[in-house]
Simulated scan of single mutants.
Amino acid sequence: MDEQLKTITTHAFAAATAVSLGSAISYPLDTIKVLIQVGSGTNKPLTTAQILGRVQSISGNSGLYSGLGWLTTGRIAGLGARFGVYEILTAFYKDGREYSYVHTGEAFTAGMVAGAFESLLSSPFELVKLRAQVNSASWTPRSTVSAAAAAEKATISGLVERLLPGNLPNMKTLNQSVNLLATLGGPKQTNMIDSVRKYPWMMTGSGRPPSITDVRSPSQIISLEGWSSLWRGLRSGIVRDSIFGGTFFASWEFLHRVLITWKAVGMESPPESDEDVGPLSPIAVSLAAGVSGTVAAAASHCFDTAKSRSQCIVLPKFLYMERKFLKWKTPGKWFERQTGIHPSDRNILFRGIWLRMARSGSMSFVVVGGYLLGIDLLLPK
């Protein structure tokens, strides 16, 4: 039992180390990709050079690694769920078969289910990570904001400060609202201004939320937007990770079959099963994983853009309650509503696709290669 526990611990340590290494190496590509996705408009495409220049001028080179810890934690949990669920499902497929073989279609189905589980676990970490990345390229005139906040502090109630941190009141909208309500008259007219100030949507001008730079830590997000906001963009995230997982494992299984067949051709006697072929080269397996990750990233990228843009929106709890009360209908066609794509993002869904393909391919190569290398070094042969 002690030996089995030691083996499991070694595998877990090697996997976590490989994921951490892969995340650190590919993270600058992820930061640039995210900033292109959330910063680009239909008529305003951003280039890699522009993103690099802005991040370096505001946060320095360290800005490219903002949120790395959150991504690494989410990746360890997410990839553990992806490969764990995949192994469990494929074990049912292989049960009763003479040889341990998984068809490409079965690998695709199991990968889609595994990707959905991965999305559920990693979504909160991705949200905080994305907010940190956007903050690294966002310049806020702190001195101006502080002076204005000090001038208006006497007119802001504690309730508004708690609900809308870092957001200044729109006095023009407040005065217009008071003037409209003042025509009603009544004995309590003198207290109308103080009463109106208790409602955040009256103070901010039609419910305009704070800047994303002021709502980026987990405590701020939960306080202003609620616990459910940690899974914002879940629909597009599940579709993205399901397509990614299915394409990744189907491609990897196909390439694995090609490598085994290629190795079997050079053997003197034809092998009866895959076990007779022997283990494949770690470099070949890592390259197969890298190619599979690149293909899977290309297939699921448009949903990655939709998720990134939705996570970049600050939606306070009172606005969410208003939309729910008024039965606000999500815009877009049926497919867009079901997959979480906003109709205004139709022309920018493929922005940053080459960066994501490079990031996913390099990370998959490093994770699989690092895991195999770690097992080879830590476990006795």
Score class of each variant (00 low, 15 high):
Pro187Glu: 13
Lys188Pro: 00
Asn191Phe: 01
Met192Glu: 11
Ile193Arg: 11
Ile193Asn: 04
Asp194Lys: 09
Asp194Ala: 05
Val196Met: 09
Arg197His: 02
Arg197Tyr: 00
Lys198Arg: 10
Pro200His: 00
Pro200Gly: 01
Trp201Arg: 10
Met202Thr: 11
Met202Phe: 12
Thr204Ser: 07
Gly205His: 07
Gly205Val: 04
Gly205Asp: 02
Ser206Trp: 05
Pro210Phe: 02
Pro210Lys: 00
Ser211Leu: 11
Ile212Trp: 10
Thr213Tyr: 14
Thr213Pro: 07
Asp214Ser: 13
Asp214Cys: 09
Asp214Pro: 09
Asp214Gly: 12
Val215Arg: 04
Arg216Pro: 00
Arg216Trp: 08
Ser217Thr: 11
Ser217Glu: 01
Pro218Gly: 03
Pro218Ser: 01
Pro218Phe: 00
Pro218Trp: 00
Ser219Met: 07
Ser219Gly: 12
Gln220Pro: 00
Gln220Ile: 09
Gln220Asp: 12
Ile221Trp: 01
Ile221Met: 15
Ile222Asn: 02
Leu224Phe: 05
Leu224Arg: 04
Glu225Pro: 04
Glu225Phe: 00
Glu225Trp: 07
Gly226Thr: 05
Trp227Pro: 12
Trp227Leu: 15
Trp227Ser: 07
Ser228Thr: 11
Ser228Met: 05
Leu230Asp: 14
Leu230Met: 15
Leu230Thr: 04
Trp231Val: 11
Trp231Pro: 08
Trp231His: 07
Trp231Leu: 13
Gly233Cys: 06
Gly233Met: 08
Leu234Pro: 02
Gly237His: 05
